[in-house]
Design a protein around this nucleic acid. Structure first.
Lengths: 150, 150
DNA sequence: TTAAGTGCAAATATTTTGCTGTCAC
DNA sequence: GTGACAGCAAAATATTTGCACTTAA
């Protein structure tokens, strides 16, 4: 993926100014939330956190900004097997795609990076002559702890 | 996956009677839709098609039946990169998982089966000690035709 | 200055639920 | 006969949109 390897804090904000995308108080708050999030926030959580930075942030601004970030390939949208409701989760895009594993019993989300996944995507691009822009591998099942308990 | 290799028409209905799940007129209509669908129907389409078989079928019965089928591992739920709205698509589960590729320009959905995908899942089960029940690999990008046009 | 962005409220879209009556077994 | 299932309408959840006001560049 074409993003730089280094994880500069404020990279999303830097991208905005490079592209001449207008920076507002509200966007700054939302970007800050996305940049400092450890992971997987849904729209409601992003709104709540952004409101702490700038209480004027509105729900619709969150959705509009998420859409903007998604269009620019700066965040990934996840469904995480819809374990908690039907909404989406968002996380900052990193260079290496990772697999999300959701435990159907305890709801824990785990991540996994694999060379095989990279090979698989290469195979798809080659065999299907398909230019991959975004990929999402989500797995539902039972984590070690929950398997032991059952 | 533990389902038989052969694609018997009426397999979903057979599963129901084996498990002692009550068969109703409405469920029969919905199962028939799922069994004869070429692929990827959303809830609204399933409702429309089921109503043609049995006009009494209600929207909520469709959702309740889809949930039942999902719980029993008989169908897969897909998001298909949310190219058309935010709803879900459903398809009968087959033995071999397949990758769904959605063209972000023309909206076409393509499928791909790969041994590498099977290897990847085995790696996850082994390395993460995670029991996979369902997996979903969705890819967004540009198909050959749309790449040429652009 | 002015086009882009915002909050607010209302609209949409999708899915779920409570309730009362019906039907499969 | 009875417990599971149905339709209906209303609620819940998630996201989008129209519009008048505000603000970044």
């Amino acid at each position: 993926m074409p993003l730089p390897q280094t994880e500069i804090p404020g990279r999303l904000q830097a991208y905005f100014s490079e592209r001449g995308i207008r920076m507002t108080q509200q966007r700054r708050a939302i970007l800050q939330v996305m940049e400092t999030a450890s992971k997987h926030l849904d729209a409601a959580q992003i709104l709540r956190k952004a409101k702490k930075i700038d209480p004027s942030v509105d729900r619709s601004t969150v959705y509009r900004t998420l859409k903007l970030l998604k269009r620019n390939g700066l965040i990934d949208e996840l469904d995480l097997m819809h374990i908690h409701g039907e909404g989406h989760y968002y996380e900052r895009k990193v260079n290496r795609d990772h697999i999300h594993m959701a435990c159907l019993r305890c709801g824990k989300i785990m991540e996994f990076v694999s060379d095989i996944f990279e090979n698989l995507k290469q195979q798809v691009e080659k065999d299907c002559r398909f230019k991959i822009m975004v990929s999402r591998l989500e797995i539902g099942g039972y984590c070690t702890a929950c398997r032991a308990q059952q």
